[in-house]
């Protein structure tokens, strides 16, 4: 039986005071969007630190990499205090050294130095994602980890695509959201609609007139997800 493969969680410090915080954020986004979109997921650090047990279970459910801007290590220490030991800890100021001095806090001022810094850090993060992904259980089918995760749970595809109003939309981390809500005991069906919508809205901007369409699509996808994950599996 193929096992669901946990995505690697990446938590960036917020780091508003220093350019290294912006570099950390941009590098994590680059990994999520471009370098390792199928293998990684994130959560807001302040939300995580502020969060309930559900959020704090994050690092216990995912092998986690923290990316801190400075040696205060807010992301690493916060994650380990509230959730679990991190698998890898990167510090932007250590990676960049003197390079960081020519970087900017605002992306509006970003120049070649910022762009190179983001790439350097993003590539380091991607290397850590690969190392952690290699430690995850492999599916029997020989599928890629991302495809195997989809096939294993029967849930939404790993890139979180839904069909809303006839159009394909992507919701980052949707499988994680479903897993989280299922763990909290949310039952599929129309009663799940508001909880699904409100949770997705935390991570995905919606206009009010889009909400009904998303809600219907989420209820259907969650029903499918739970239906598949609740079914007994026959091995051999």
């Amino acid at each position: 039986m193929a096992e669901a493969i946990a995505k690697v969680g990446i938590i960036s410090c917020s780091g508003e005071e220093i350019p290294e915080g912006t570099i950390a954020r941009q590098a994590v986004r680059r990994v999520l969007e471009g370098l390792r979109p199928q293998q990684s997921v994130t959560i807001c650090l302040p939300l995580f630190l502020e969060g309930e047990e559900g959020e704090r279970r994050f690092a216990r459910q995912h092998p986690t990499i923290t990316v801190d801007g400075c040696s205060k290590l807010c992301a690493k220490q916060g994650t380990e205090k509230y959730s679990g030991r991190v698998s890898a800890s990167l510090v932007v100021s250590d990676i960049l050294g003197e390079r960081a001095k020519s970087c900017h806090r605002s992306i509006r001022c970003a120049d070649q130095a910022d762009e190179e810094a983001v790439w350097l850090v993003a590539e380091r993060v991607a290397v850590e994602v690969d190392a952690l992904a290699a430690l995850q259980p492999q599916a029997e089918s020989g599928q890629t980890p991302a495809a195997a995760a989809c096939g294993a749970c029967g849930g939404p595809p790993p890139n979180g695509k839904l069909i809303v109003g006839g159009k394909s939309v992507t919701i980052d981390g949707l499988p994680l959201i479903f897993a989280h809500l299922k763990n909290k005991g949310l039952q599929p069906g129309s009663g799940s609609a508001n909880t699904l919508l409100q949770t997705v809205k935390i991570y995905h901007a919606l206009e009010p007139d889009q909400e009904a369409g998303y809600q219907d699509a989420l209820v259907a996808a969650y029903q499918t997800y739970c239906g598949h994950t609740l079914q007994p599996r026959i091995q051999g």
Binding site: C13, S14, G15, E16, E17, I18, G21, L45, P46, L49, E50, K72, C74, A75, Q77, G78
Partner: peptide, 8 residues
């Protein structure tokens, strides 16, 4: 200020 530092 860094929000995470404040939260911490």
């Amino acid at each position: 200020v860094c929000l995470a530092l404040l939260v911490a």
